[in-house]
């Protein structure tokens, strides 16, 4: 008996049968698994959380901590894609993701996501502190298990509660530097938490038929588009004071306050526009306008806070 048998030349049918077990995803496919656009938001909000921390920050440790938080967020996105590959394949928005597109096998995505999850948590624990690492681990658990595996398939309030996972990064960023959290970082958590429902529901309104086909109980599918429009308006109105709160109750300054007020009013006006326009192309455009503006809203507010923190560090500020 010999173990070193010659490889058998496969027939074309055998090739077809074997091929699905082999994936040839490129580095770009793996990058896409990390949901890079969500990662941008996480990096940005966690950076603001870090920079609002008192005292100096070692730039190398700060950068590495931010990297760990970003990779942890990406890993949870990867595990989300692994679990929801079946749903993703049914929706046009997600059907080109690496797993439904066939460029990466589910098992590869699971291994990739788990490795990055464990690696990012351990790395953050070793370079920053174990409180921040535990918080990052909880965030990954919350997003993958509580949101993806449970809430998303169970309740129309899925993205309301699940939105907490996306709202934690400013607190993790602050905690990575200080080992604790403060009121301001909690207010940024609250800001993203309240921002998430109108942001996602605006998209879900347009894509409700796809969510219905995939069996995901999004609010427009369960409660109908009109009830969703009303909910979006209420959340957008609530977002005005919540957006202003870091300036009124905590360390954010006047520049942030002005930006938060103006952006909050614009978002509420767009939510009202969506509430009024309920039919046809106008309703669709209003939903997309709100969705796009809500992204600008979050970047605008956190950008304003970033500017406030970075301006005093610029060279001409030191001349005073």
């Amino acid at each position: 008996m010999t173990l070193a048998a010659e490889p058998v030349a496969p027939s074309s049918s055998a090739l077809d049968a074997e091929r699905p077990t082999i994936a040839f995803g490129t580095a770009r496919d793996y990058y896409e698994l990390l949901k890079p656009r969500v990662m941008q938001l996480v990096i940005f909000t966690a950076l603001v959380g870090m920079l609002t921390a008192p005292g100096p920050i070692n730039p190398i440790i700060g950068f590495a901590s931010l990297l760990a938080i970003a990779v942890g967020a990406g890993a949870s996105g990867c595990l989300n894609m692994w679990y929801d590959a079946g749903i993703d394949a049914l929706m046009t928005r997600t059907s080109k993701r690496p797993i439904p597109a066939g460029s990466i096998q589910p098992g590869e995505a699971l291994a990739f996501g788990m490795t990055l999850s464990i690696g990012s948590v351990l790395f953050l624990g070793l370079i920053a502190n174990w409180y921040a690492a535990a918080f990052l681990a909880f965030t990954i658990f919350f997003y993958v298990v509580i949101y993806t595996m449970w809430l998303k398939h169970w309740t129309a309030q899925n993205i309301v509660i699940g939105g907490a996972a996306g709202a934690f990064p400013p607190m993790i960023g602050y905690m990575a530097i200080t080992g604790s959290f403060n009121l301001e970082s909690f207010l940024y958590f609250l800001l993203i938490f309240v921002w998430t429902p109108p942001h996602f529901w605006a998209l879900a309104l347009v894509k409700s038929h796809e969510y219905a086909r995939a069996g995901v109980p999004m609010l427009p599918v369960v409660a109908g588009p009109d009830a969703t429009r009303a909910q979006i308006l209420w959340y957008a109105l609530a977002l005005i004071p919540v957006g202003m709160a870091p300036a009124l109750l905590s360390g954010a300054g006047y520049f942030y306050l002005v930006v938060a007020t103006v952006f909050g009013l614009v978002l509420a006006a767009l939510a009202y526009d969506l509430y009024r326009k309920r039919e046809g192309d106008a309703a669709r455009k209003a939903a997309f306008r709100l969705f796009g503006t809500s992204i600008l809203y979050l970047f605008g507010l956190f950008g304003a806070r970033l500017v406030e923190q970075l301006l005093p560090l610029l060279p001409w500020s030191l001349l005073k």
Partner: peptide, 27 residues
């Protein structure tokens, strides 16, 4: 044990080899 007891190994196309090499470099 004869050769047919071993799983068949698919032959890779030039494109698949190229993608595998690119992935190895990225790794």
């Amino acid at each position: 044990m004869s050769a047919e007891h071993y799983p068949e190994i698919p032959q890779l196309t030039a494109e698949e080899i190229k993608r595998r090499n690119a992935r190895s470099r990225a790794l």
